[in-house]
Nucleic acid binder design. Structure first.
Lengths: 231, 231
DNA sequence: CGATAATGTTACAGACCGGTCACACCCTGT
DNA sequence: ACAGGGTGTGACCGGTCTGTAACATTATCG
């Protein structure tokens, strides 16, 4: 049946994996539990034995996404333990990968749009995740010696969030195509301001990209990262 | 019955207005045509006589939103005819208003998230609208003498788009709270780079805001604008 | 007034939704 | 061999969804 790395997946994992896929492709409200169960090679009854309701399944999926993103952070924090500025650059590149990917944006953010009810149980997971991402990024900025670390973290968060949603509504050639160039320029501007202050010029900061960069094209180290549609 | 400015609205306008409201509150897929018709003080049959299908109604609503935003642009272009930099500032402030407002983000962007099918007829409207917004903003940047006008337009677009979506998933205290500060700082950085070059420093550019600005609070001129949940 | 168009009302079709029930099956461990 | 837990099957419930049919009512305007 369905496997992952040679190990046959049990129904529960298959359901979560399949549900994540279908939710992402068609939207949470655009796919029914029956379709999920069938696509996962099982049936509705088994699905309901593992997840008491569709909302429960949604929450489990969102938690699963959040867990994957956390793992990326943990790996990055280890790989770039003594190079926080390099980690910031890697954050931009992996963010750009997420922007391209399949162009469906962040699962958590999408869920927040779809599940409009302000008291929906999934909102806790979403808000906690977003808060966590912001804090992680701010901490990284602080570690990198950025003077206005929180402000840079917020700026980068808005840029990535915007790139991912803009990719959906304005297309791949829209403003999100310049996410890498913009992100790197912003980091350079913030980094150059607090300490060395040599040249706090905006854009054209790390070489390459510049005005005519057009389509963002992640390469180099970030390519190795099997990030799928994380975050 | 339902009026607007003293003039009684005909069923068609009432339906569009009501549908926009309900779509916004509960999401497009979260509200049925029957509920829309009833809330609009009419019935499903009349709704279907004006709009052949729910998709048609969705498209009409999105066009209506786009039209309102266009009107704002036209007014701004007239009010700030000889002060493009001032218009950019106004753009940021009215954007911040949209971010706050009811915290449900851009109707067009939300629709792009909800209507995941890549061939959904509403996608044309959405993409055209977003392309148009970007071009308008870029033209404004050019008029303001910004050297890298397109890059600034893309940056501001990502920031606003990010602020509006982040407001939904990370809450009102999240990164979107600093949208005005960030936006103004970016504009100042770009404006200071191309020509005068006096101080291209990031942040702390136009006074006020700064590090501890916390919640964005639109005031002054932008307050007059009855923007509702435009864009 | 009278003709015509727009609107209201009710009922219905057909599909799909989330969720449950009863029961049969099969695999695993002892 | 046996027991028990996880799983598969199909039917079913009540509700909601988009969309339509037929007919009654009202508004508009010459």
């Amino acid at each position: 049946m369905q496997e992952d790395g040679g190990v046959p997946l049990r129904p529960r994992e298959r359901i979560i994996s399949t549900a994540r896929d279908l939710f992402r492709k068609h939207g949470i409200r655009g796919v029914g539990v029956d379709a999920i169960a069938e696509a996962a090679g099982t049936n509705k009854m088994t699905l309901y034995r593992h997840f008491g309701s569709k909302d429960d399944l949604i929450i489990a999926c969102l938690r699963d996404v959040a867990r994957e993103v956390d793992e990326i952070w943990i790996r990055f924090d280890r790989e770039y333990a003594d190079d926080p500025l390099g980690e910031l650059g890697a954050w931009v590149r992996v963010g750009a990968e997420c922007v391209l990917d399949d162009g469906r944006g962040c699962d958590l953010a999408n869920a927040a749009v779809e599940l409009a009810e302000s008291d929906h149980p999934a909102r806790h997971v979403i808000e906690e995740f977003k808060r966590d991402q912001r804090n992680r990024l701010a901490k990284l900025c602080r570690r990198a010696g950025i003077a206005k670390a929180d402000l840079l973290a917020d700026t980068l968060t808005l840029l990535l969030e915007g790139a991912r949603v803009s990719r959906q509504s304005a297309g791949i050639e829209g403003p999100s195509a310049r996410f890498i160039a913009i992100g790197e320029a912003v980091i350079a501007a913030f980094a150059g301001e607090g300490q060395a202050r040599k040249h706090s010029r905006l854009s054209r900061s790390t070489g390459r990209q510049g005005e005519g960069a057009a389509i963002v094209s992640p390469r180099g180290r970030a390519r190795r990262v099997p990030v799928e549609h994380a975050r």
